[in-house]
Design a binder for these strands. Structure first.
Lengths: 204, 204
DNA sequence: GTTTACAAACCAAGCGCTTGCTTGGTATTG
DNA sequence: CAATACCAAGCAAGCGCTTGGTTTGTAAAC
């Protein structure tokens, strides 16, 4: 299944919004604004202007501003979990799977869904308690993909540190790339993935 | 020089505020509130209430709310740069220096200055352009300490990846610990430092 | 050792503005 | 001809910050 096929099957199941639709376009703009200015600094007037409607009209699509934030996060996790699962399944060895996970997450963070990923990582404080629970449940599924691979590597002796610590370190390290890495610079995404593998002393 | 001696010499030079004074106490509470709720969600009324004064009285000490944020950041960098320099100077080998840097940064993030460090890392978007320049200048000094050590290790062959990439990965990984690591749990700060070294394949 | 002078620290009140959101009505679409 | 999508206007609340006046700490003057 191609990335595009995965996206469209999720759209068909109503798990993510069609980026071409009104709702999808709003979520895309919202992600960009939330990342650039932060959720609190982004006003409903900003959001409305970004898609060319009046601020009041937003509330036909979402009951509250926070619901927009939650939707950005939920849809992003759903899509990226599916994409990541597919990327991992294509590999046979643990080493290959780990590389696929790192590569995929770097792509999420620095590619098309980058705005939304940054929001997911850095704006969870702005979620209400209820929304937080909902988002965390989805995140646990995503995280389990990582832990399964890292645990296997630990058993094989390829990994010296504790898997859950390593995953958390990688979460921080990879998400932080959004603040400094530019895909159009001298370092490609594959090159960046190589650097992470090398930093972990796993290069062949 | 002990950590306490370093702190007091900086206070004497008027580079950081005495934590016992009115200004110091406010900055401490501000750091806590900014970390817990974010800068935007924290109101001047929150800040004033935290130190037991009226909101308007804040503006005798700081001209704007943003000046409070800047002060938290600037004073934190100044203190931590001095502490880190001292921790590094106490080591002779590159490996020892790197461990000291990692250990020190983990301490900054998860210790007493933890609130302020989290603000420094995650709230820079709320700074005005002018303040940002000022803070970045101080940060460059701090970062150079890391790069010097990592460059030396690269030359010695202990490090396979690019120093500037490694530093940025470590920045993300270490600062992210604030979201999950609890010093009173089963893992000590030294243990956590060991995990980082092990993850980099540098354990002996 | 009391008085006087003065600045720093603070309070009570509130101004002007922006915020998220509501309302009542009008196009547009199937 | 209903449902959906939207607009124009604005409300109530909360925001950063200002203002005019009072308390408090301190140190010289008597």
């Amino acid at each position: 299944m191609t990335q595009d096929a995965i996206l469209h099957s999720l759209i068909a199941e109503n798990l993510v919004s069609d980026p071409a639709g009104a709702r999808g376009r709003l979520l895309r703009e919202a992600a960009r604004l939330f990342r650039d200015k932060g959720y609190e600094r982004t006003t409903v007037r900003d959001l409305a202007a970004a898609v060319g409607i009046q601020s009041g009209s937003l509330f036909h699509h979402f009951r509250t501003k926070e619901e927009i934030l939650k939707a950005v996060m939920v849809e992003t996790i759903r899509l990226n979990t599916a994409l990541m699962q597919a990327a991992m399944d294509a590999e046979s060895t643990c080493h290959g799977k780990l590389r696929a996970l790192i590569r995929a997450e770097l792509e999420f963070i620095n590619g098309q869904t980058g705005e939304a990923m940054a929001v997911l990582v850095y704006e969870w404080r702005s979620l209400s308690e209820a929304s937080r629970v909902e988002v965390l449940e989805l995140r646990d599924i995503y995280e389990q993909l990582w832990l399964d691979v890292l645990n296997a590597m630990k058993h094989q002796g390829d990994l010296k540190a504790e898997p859950f610590v390593v995953r958390r370190m990688l979460t921080g390290a990879l998400s932080w790339t959004v603040t400094w890495y530019r895909p159009d610079g001298g370092l490609s995404l594959d090159g960046l993935t190589d650097q992470v593998i090398a930093m972990m002393g796993l290069a062949e």
